[in-house]
Design a binder for these strands. Structure first.
Lengths: 148, 148
DNA sequence: TATATATACATAGCGAGCTATCTAAAAGGA
DNA sequence: TCCTTTTAGATAGCTCGCTATGTATATATA
């Protein structure tokens, strides 16, 4: 039973994601951001005052993962937590001035990384690439949630 | 400057790779394997007695990453290290009987995971998906090596 | 040959993902 | 109202990436 890794979608997905992450990391490190922090900031730049739970749903990571990411972001002065007005268990997460200031540069960095990765792909290929990834994600997400 | 994460190749690549990894993990955990161990075993099932350095090149991970993966594989009784006959710095890595015994089941698990992920894609779409990922990987790899 | 450089591997320390488990508050039901 | 269940979050402990650095052996050069 042969298994050629260069023809395995899973192997390629892992390899590709690592290259995206390290490329993005190099670009945003000067801004004081790490990749998961950037992804979280994307949601917060869009709308402030979310709870940890809301971020978990938006980014589709486990609660424990988000708890740690948020802790590092607080440590790094990117966010502040305030008591939730209605729910004593929850906290609302707000951006600091520092986080607001890096938005433009960080978004440019991410767009540049994406552009570099997709270099040499025709417009239609790019569209299809995003579509195929979305469909594959949907396949696996649905299958995963079925089991719970 | 808007940034829609569902249209960002990097975001999708990360999400997809996490789903592949957790799907594979669930399937091979009963065999006593973790995902990175499986990827390493794919090379060793193909050819035994490789050095750590050779595995680093084949899997395109950092040397320190491979050193840790190998240590866990040794701990778990999947490999044994023997002194390299020609080079006093290096070690040759050999499979244990245990590692050989799980090959067939592990390969089936990985193929099943890939098949599930690609469900609903036409044959031509699957081919193109692998091709697009390969080209994107090449883009980023070349760019990364340029800088060193 | 003696020294300098390059290479193979180990280790420390961090980010980011995961599962499992705990606490405290909220919500629901008897 | 009281008790049970659910939910929000924290924490411990693991894998697997990474960078940076140290050590010992090989190799190359003066």
């Amino acid at each position: 039973m042969e298994m050629e890794k260069t023809k395995s979608a899973g192997y390629l997905a892992n390899h590709m994601a690592r290259l995206f992450a390290s490329g993005l990391q190099a670009r945003i490190k000067p801004l004081g951001l790490a990749p998961a922090q950037f992804m979280t900031l994307l949601e917060l730049w869009n709308r402030d005052g979310l709870t940890q739970k809301e971020l978990v749903v938006l980014l589709d990571v486990e609660q424990a993962t988000m708890a740690n990411t948020i802790r590092r972001m607080e440590r790094d002065g990117l966010i502040e937590r305030k008591a939730h007005p209605k729910d004593g268990r929850a906290q609302s997460i707000f951006l600091t001035e520092k986080a607001r200031q890096v938005e433009a540069d960080a978004v440019i960095a991410a767009k540049t990384q994406n552009a570099e990765a997709l270099e040499g792909l025709a417009h239609a290929e790019r569209t299809q690439f995003l579509d195929l990834m979305s469909r594959v994600i949907t396949n696996m997400r649905d299958r995963a949630s079925e089991k719970s």
